[in-house]
Each structure stands twice: as structure tokens, then as C-alpha cells.
């Protein structure tokens, strides 16, 4: 009996980590963008681009690692698009994010049908998938390493200090000689690369690409970032919590009286509660969402 319990416990723990990986990637990505002052609700679309490009490149090149690299590259490109629109052209950051999500949903299915002859989903042959490293895919270790690296970078290096400074008080950073918009651009592109990697994890994990396969995980990653109070370790912990809720939901399916939907709702509800300040308030970076313009000497609002 206790052996069964232990077995379930171990499989639940493994599943938790596996479910958390794409969230860890994307929420760490969100950290780089949002901490620099650029809202990124386009994480969902960036992940979808990553999922598709990772899968399609592996499909045709028979090289999974090339797919991973391609996903990071395409994610970065979409990050460039978001950065160019919001920083250079001062487009509304939320609208640009919404557009990127639609672009991801449309383009990936469109291209899938073009490349795979009318199919909205396709499977990867076993040899085109990433080989497991121990109990997990290699991307798992990269994800956790990335979150730790982001923490070290942000809180122990000059670059990290600059990243946080341009998100909190860009004018002060500017007077110290920090190139505000350059740092923001790099932050947003980095977020695209991370989200692309998080997206690439999905087809290598499931063995296929499917239409809209991210299914809201980009938004859950955003939730993890907020619930984790806009820092990488917090986001990592939140990703694991949300991963656990998801894993538990699958384990319990059909076994318990608790409806699966109650656990599916956890990330969204706890994020709203955290944002409202009921359990330790999440406070966004002070200058998030505001474009920075050097020429203006008097702040108008």
C-alpha cells in the first residue's frame, strides 16, 4: 500500500517538473521583458512560434537540436518584432502582444498546412525527437539553469541592475548613462528566445505539433511571473506550483470527486488574488508599459 503511495508520489513529482518546464522558460522570458519595462502578453504567441518552428525543423532536418536552436531563433525574431513595434514605434504594448498572439495562432497553422500538405498537426518520428537525459528531456535542465542564471544575472551583475533600473526609473537610469531603449530591446528579444525554447519543449515532449498546442500556457507563464512577484526564483516556484496543479489534475482524473476543472483554474485564480494583494501583493515594475522618450524634459503625467 505504501509502495503504491510512494510510486504515485514519485510519478506525481516527475510529472510536476515536466509540466513546469515550458512555464519556467516562458516566465523567465517574461521576466526579462517586463523587468525592462515592456509588457509582454505575447508570450503565448511566441511559444506557439517556438513549438511550430522547433517541430517543423526537426521534422525536415531530422535533427532535434537544430529544431531547438531554430525555435530559439524564431522566438527571438518575434521578440524583435514586439521590441521594434513597442520601443521604436511606441506601439501600445498590450495591443502589440495581442497581435503577436493572433499572428502565432494564424501563422503556425497556416504554415503547417502549407508544409505538411493540408495538415493542421503532424507527428515527429522517434529519431527526430530529443533523447531523454535521465528522467527528463535535456531542455528541463536548461530551463532550471536558465532561471537560476537569470537570478544571478539580475541581482549580482551590473547588466542585471541596469535591466531592473530601466524598468523602474528609466530617466534616472538614462542620466547615469544607461542606454534605456537598447536594454529594453535586449530584454524583449531575450524574452522571445526563452518563450521560443519553452514552446519547443511541447512538441518534443508530446511527439507532435498540433494546432494551438500551447493552449494558454503562455498566459499561465505570465501568471507565474506575476504570482512569483516578477522575479525568476518566484516565477520558478510558481511554475512548479502550477505544474503540480496540472499534474495532480491528470493523476486524479476519474479517481477523485474533485472536478479536474477546479485544479485547472488554480493558476488563474491565485494570480488574481496575488494581484489584488490578498496574499502578499505582487507589485509590477514601476515604469512598465510606458514608452521612454529622451527628448521630453518634463514628464507630462
Amino acid at each position: 500500500m505504501s509502495d503504491v503511495g510512494a510510486a504515485i508520489g514519485i510519478s506525481l513529482a516527475l510529472a510536476t517538473v515536466r509540466k513546469a518546464v515550458p512555464l519556467v522558460f516562458a516566465s523567465t522570458g517574461g521576466f526579462f521583458s517586463e523587468r525592462s519595462g515592456i509588457i509582454n502578453i505575447g508570450l503565448e504567441g511566441m511559444m506557439l512560434f517556438g513549438a511550430f518552428s522547433g517541430a517543423i525543423i526537426a521534422y525536415f532536418s531530422h535533427n532535434a537540436w537544430l529544431g531547438v536552436l531554430g525555435a530559439a531563433f524564431v522566438g527571438g525574431l518575434i521578440g524583435c518584432l514586439h521590441a521594434f513595434a513597442t520601443i521604436q514605434l511606441k506601439a501600445n504594448q498590450i495591443i502589440s502582444g495581442v497581435a503577436i498572439n493572433m499572428l502565432g495562432a494564424g501563422t503556425t497553422v497556416f504554415l503547417s498546412q502549407v508544409f505538411i500538405h493540408g495538415e493542421r498537426s503532424f507527428s515527429l518520428a522517434p529519431q527526430d525527437r530529443l533523447p531523454a537525459l535521465g528522467p527528463f528531456l535535456p531542455l528541463t535542465y536548461i530551463a532550471f539553469g536558465l532561471a537560476i542564471g537569470a537570478t544571478v544575472f539580475s541581482y549580482y551583475t551590473v547588466g542585471g541592475l541596469r535591466l531592473r533600473a530601466v524598468g523602474e526609473h528609466p530617466r534616472a537610469a538614462d542620466t547615469q548613462g544607461v542606454r534605456v531603449n537598447r536594454i529594453r530591446f535586449l530584454g524583449v528579444v531575450t524574452s522571445g528566445v526563452c518563450a521560443g525554447l519553452g514552446g519547443a519543449y511541447l512538441p518534443f515532449f508530446s511527439g507532435s505539433f498540433a494546432k494551438n498546442m500551447t493552449a494558454g500556457q503562455g498566459f499561465i507563464a505570465l501568471a507565474a511571473l506575476i504570482f512569483g512577484k516578477w522575479n525568476p526564483m518566484g516565477a520558478l516556484a510558481a511554475s512548479l506550483l502550477f505544474g503540480f496543479a496540472d499534474a495532480l489534475q491528470e493523476t486524479l482524473q476519474g479517481r477523485a470527486h474533485l472536478p479536474a476543472q477546479a485544479l485547472q483554474m488554480v493558476p488563474y485564480v491565485v494570480t488574481m488574488i496575488a494581484l489584488a494583494g490578498v496574499i502578499g501583493r505582487s507589485i509590477p515594475p514601476a515604469s512598465i508599459g510606458k514608452p521612454y522618450e529622451r527628448e521630453v524634459t518634463e514628464a507630462s503625467t
Binding site: A91, A99, L103, F110
Partner: peptide, 21 residues
């Protein structure tokens, strides 16, 4: 031509309007 072309066009329009070129 798949119907998702429409979603792509929609997204591009949003992006262009937002950038207000």
C-alpha cells in the same frame, strides 16, 4: 490557401494600426 490567412491578416492589421505608421 488555408483560412488561417485571415487570422494572419487580422494580426497584421492590428500591428500596423497599433504602430500607427
Amino acid at each position: 490557401v488555408p483560412r488561417e490567412l485571415v487570422t494572419v491578416i487580422q494580426a497584421v492589421i492590428i500591428l500596423f494600426v497599433a504602430c500607427d505608421l
